[in-house]
């Protein structure tokens, strides 16, 4: 394995990892707000991708507007889920909302199948199909651009939670709903916001991957699983943990596929996850109980 090949594998891993990070952030934000793990997160990513496909390929919008359509469409679905599932089930055993989100996942996929069909859809390359060559690493310009967008989203989230009033209010709600409510924070509005942001991030992830891979209604299953793994990997509930988990998982699975065995790529990634959880049960950056 030459150094440039290794660099190539790591770059591809970081790009995938950025998408996993968006998913992991979605899981983390919703978990912090309501203690819910949304198993339809991957299918919301798929919705972002198919909305993006409709906007870009069928409506001929430019790529910026495509983003807006994908993100807002996904966020709207997040709000709907908040209204139909998360809020009514708040205070019930967590298993109830788990089952409900699995149901939502099946429903979303079925609707996707009916509207967009079972065949993969071809999303044309956004910034040309001529790869750049940087120090022996061959990469499409769009890859770099997607990476930048994903990093910007992550940075914006960090800034939002650290510096804005609303962001602080959401963190306060995450720490203690009752105390936050007593301080006059509109807790229910925070829940809705968390649902919308969480789904919107997945929607952005969906639009970002659409030109890299094909768009298909089954694409959410594995993306959701990997995003969840990344969130657990870094420590569920921790935002820096989601970033570390996402990029770590992306790079680890690509390296293991290259250095160990491509056939067992997913298996190796999940074995690493198991080992880490064995060593640190609350994840790399999770708060230990």
């Amino acid at each position: 394995m030459t150094a440039s090949s290794l660099a190539q594998v790591i770059v591809a891993g970081i790009a995938m990892g950025a998408i996993y990070t968006l998913m992991a952030l979605g899981f983390t934000i919703l978990f912090n707000a309501m203690g819910v793990i949304n198993f339809a997160q991957g299918d919301i990513l798929m919705l972002g991708a198919v909305f993006g496909y409709t906007a870009y390929v069928q409506w001929h919008l430019d790529f910026f507007l495509t983003f807006v359509v994908g993100a807002l469409g996904a966020a709207a679905v997040g709000l709907l889920m908040n209204w139909l599932i998360f809020r009514p089930l708040l205070g019930h055993p967590p298993l109830n909302s788990v089952i409900a989100t699995i149901g939502a996942s099946i429903l979303i996929r079925a609707v996707g199948l009916i509207v967009w069909g079972s065949q993969a859809l071809y999303f044309p390359p956004v910034m040309g199909s001529q790869p750049l060559n940087i120090f022996g690493v061959s990469i499409l310009p769009y890859y770099l651009w997607a990476l930048v967008i994903a990093l910007l989203c992550i940075a914006a989230m960090q800034a939002f939670f650290r510096y804005t009033r609303t962001g602080k209010a959401m963190r306060a709600t995450a720490q203690s709903r009752d105390a936050a409510a007593l301080q006059g924070i509109p807790v229910q509005r925070m829940d809705a916001l968390a649902s919308a942001i969480s789904a919107g991030l997945s929607g952005i992830g969906g639009v970002l991957v659409a030109p890299i891979f094909f768009v298909q209604t089954s694409m959410g299953a594995l993306a959701g699983l990997k995003g969840f793994a990344a969130a657990v990997f870094g420590g569920l509930g921790s935002i820096p943990g989601a970033i570390l988990g996402g990029v770590g998982l992306g790079v680890a699975e690509n390296l293991s596929a290259t250095l160990i065995s491509s056939t067992y790529r997913d298996a190796v990634a999940f074995v690493i996850l198991l080992v880490i959880l064995f060593w640190r049960p609350s994840g790399l950056l999770g708060r230990s109980k």
């Binding site: 594998v9 591809a12 891979f213 299953a221 594995l222 690509n254 790529r265 997913d266």
Partner: peptide, 9 residues
Amino acid sequence: NDNTNDFTS
């Protein structure tokens, strides 16, 4: 695997 979509390695 039948769910892989990144074949770089």
